[in-house]
Computed example of a mutant assay.
Amino acid sequence: MKGTIGQSKVSRRNFLVGAGTLLAAPYVLKGKALAAGQVVVRTPGGAYDDIMRKFVYDPFTAETGIQVVPVAATVSKLLAMFKANNVEIDLIDTGEGPLITLSRMGALAPIEYDKWTWSRPEDVAPEYRRPDTVANFVYSSVLAFNTETFPGDNHPKNWVDFWDAEKFPGPRMLTDMAAGSPSLEFALLAAGVKKEDLYPIDIDRAFKMLTELRPHIRKFWDSGAVSAQLLSDKEVVMGCIWNGRLQTIIEKGAPLNYVWDGNMIQVQALGIFKDSPNRAAAQRLVDFMTQPDVQAKYVAALRYGPTNLKAFDHISADLLEMMPGGPKSRELGFVQNTEWWEDNRDKVNRVWSRWILG
């Protein structure tokens, strides 16, 4: 499969828990804008805001008169805001994990699916819908390889091949705990576990597989930038990497490719603070953002994948084939079980901390 998704505009690092961005201020609009209403949105910031402004925020304002104010805030800031009963943000746009944490604290309002007018809830894939969150796009961790080291069809085609250092020799990379989660799912796929049986993760078995491959791992990467650099510099000849990071270096001429087999689909989602000052406006923005034609535009610009399956009807055929969460990605991959990770993160972190020093 050719790696021709297109350049990702946004770093996945911006979406990780604990990103060091402070709450932007001041952000309250005054005058006419305030009279028409507003919704304050927590976003990752940077280029992401530019894309969403063009394809979501400005069109939403043009249609409703409601101004959208993007601000950046860490997860700790969101938690502190809720605990202090001082909620200043309406809509939260972040990784699924932090939203699960907020949900368990009782911080989120139900998504009013029954009031949607622009979108149809049933068009959003069931695994992307929860009572108080809904995913707005997905990305994938894929198996990438160097095409000079592995020319033609002689390359690793799945995670079983990735673990076969005799058949496919060379230095490898996998994720560090600091990147969000270590590559336990890929280790189990290499052990022969079927993707539908990955959860609950057999932690001991996964770490046994990691131990087996560890002599061939050059680096456990902790950021998208590091993973891209390792592949670009040929310090490693294969490894897991976020699809957007990979595509950026492919378009710069790096001799790399990837396979969809065993790709792990990961989720960016929306949630609304139950004590939101502009809760009704936030509900309308979620509905607007999820409609197929709008979602198709911003995911194409981000080079990630939509969650409304009808959005694929608005995406070109060449992009459709290579889009995370698309037909091929969904057929050959699996959706990461974020609930399991939130339940077991501390346990895995303890095991990882001992194992990585061993």
Rank of each mutant, 00 (worst) to 15 (best):
K2Y: 06
S11D: 12
G18H: 02
G20C: 08
T21Y: 06
A33L: 15
L34W: 08
A35E: 12
Q38K: 10
V40I: 14
G45N: 07
G45H: 11
A47K: 06
Y57A: 11
D58E: 13
A62P: 03
M81T: 05
M81S: 13
F82Q: 01
N85Q: 11
N86P: 01
I89H: 05
I89T: 03
T94D: 07
E96N: 03
G97L: 13
S103L: 06
M105V: 02
D114W: 10
K115F: 14
W116S: 04
T117D: 11
S119E: 11
D123I: 13
R130S: 13
P131N: 09
P131R: 07
V138D: 10
Y139S: 04
Y139F: 15
S141K: 07
L143F: 12
N154M: 08
H155N: 06
W159F: 15
A165K: 04
P169C: 10
G170I: 00
M177Y: 15
L184C: 06
L184V: 01
P200M: 11
D202W: 05
D204E: 14
R205F: 05
A206W: 10
A206S: 04
F207M: 10
L210Y: 03
L210I: 01
T211N: 10
P215M: 13
H216R: 03
L230D: 02
C240A: 08
W242Y: 11
L246E: 07
I249P: 03
I250W: 11
Q266F: 09
V267I: 11
L270E: 04
L270K: 00
L270P: 00
I272N: 00
S276M: 09
A282W: 14
Q291G: 08
P292F: 11
L302R: 01
T307Q: 06
N308P: 02
D313I: 12
D318E: 14
L319E: 14
L320Q: 03
G326D: 14
R330C: 12
T338M: 15
N344H: 15
N344F: 15
D346I: 12
R354E: 15
W355Q: 06
G358C: 06
